[in-house]
Amino acid sequence: MSTWSTNDIPDQTGRTVVITGANSGLGAQAAKALGAAGATVILACRTVSKAEPVAAEIGPNASVAALDLADLSSVRAFAEGIDHLDVLINNAGVMAVPKSRTADGFEMQFGTNHLGHFALTGLLLPKITDRVVTVSSFAHAIGKIDLDDLNYDHRRYERWSAYGQSKLANLMFAFELARKLGRSGSAVSSMCAHPGYASTNLQSHTESFYDRFMKLSNLVAQSAADGALPELYAATSPEAASGAFYGPRGLGGLRGAPTLTKPLPKARNESVAQSLWVASEKLTGVTFDL
């Protein structure tokens, strides 16, 4: 795994992969790599026009479908339009944005990064044959799951702690899904990945002074193509294990080839994960057929 690259992706001919947020950054790079390996790739994006050039570059085995993770009606409409898939990559996300609400009234980062993907996965799960990959971040380290106020209805909003909560929720969801799938005897697996520090346009949409800092620090970040390697490994490698977490191996997990990595212990807290799951089902109205 220490030298794993897109050249090591197994032949994906005959397989269908859905990637959220595949119009740019990590998602676009993952889509291109999977398309080159023969997969049928569905680019699930909020703005279809932004994803169409990526699909055109991939070729006839790529298509674009509208999906706004900040609107549960859009999530349901997208899921209804999918008949079959082998792999779902929950890649899309927003980072450190000003306080705002999704169409359903959720805090934007928790609602988009976690609840949108939670609902999407639950609705698509009966149609998935192989695996679910959820993209988190080393920012889960600054996250705390506040079960009493998940949507910042009462506590003071702080954009980075809200982002950390959403990324910790991604991890806890992926691990809890792996446990539930395992207990049910399902052949589907669930794993998580993070890109380390990769240069993408995600870092330039915080609408704050951080945007300038992020653009400057991108000079030392690895490329989006390299940042996509952990999620590609999780999505394609026969060695990738359900319940595992993959990220870059170098510079403290910031860059390099993918490797098995350890989340902070709080991400493995099963009691909190179960409570988060119940809350997520209640908020989204989506239950999992397990």
Rank of each mutant, 00 (worst) to 15 (best):
S2F: 12
N7D: 15
T20C: 00
G21S: 06
A22M: 06
S24P: 01
S24H: 14
A28Q: 08
A31W: 01
A37Q: 02
A37S: 13
G38L: 06
L43V: 02
L43D: 04
A66L: 06
L69Q: 00
L69K: 04
S74L: 08
R76T: 12
F78G: 05
E80C: 05
I82T: 07
P98M: 05
G105N: 07
H114E: 05
H114I: 04
L115N: 04
T121E: 01
P126E: 15
P126C: 12
T129P: 07
V133D: 03
V135M: 11
S136T: 13
G143Q: 08
K144G: 08
D148V: 03
H154R: 10
R155W: 11
E176Y: 07
L177I: 11
L181E: 05
S189D: 05
M191H: 03
P195D: 03
S204M: 13
N218H: 15
V220L: 15
D226F: 00
A228G: 01
T236E: 01
E239H: 14
F245P: 05
F245A: 07
R249S: 11
R249Q: 10
G253M: 10
G253P: 08
K262E: 14
N269R: 06
S271R: 14
S271D: 15
Q274C: 07
Q274L: 12
A279S: 15
A279Y: 08
E281V: 10
F288E: 08
L290K: 06
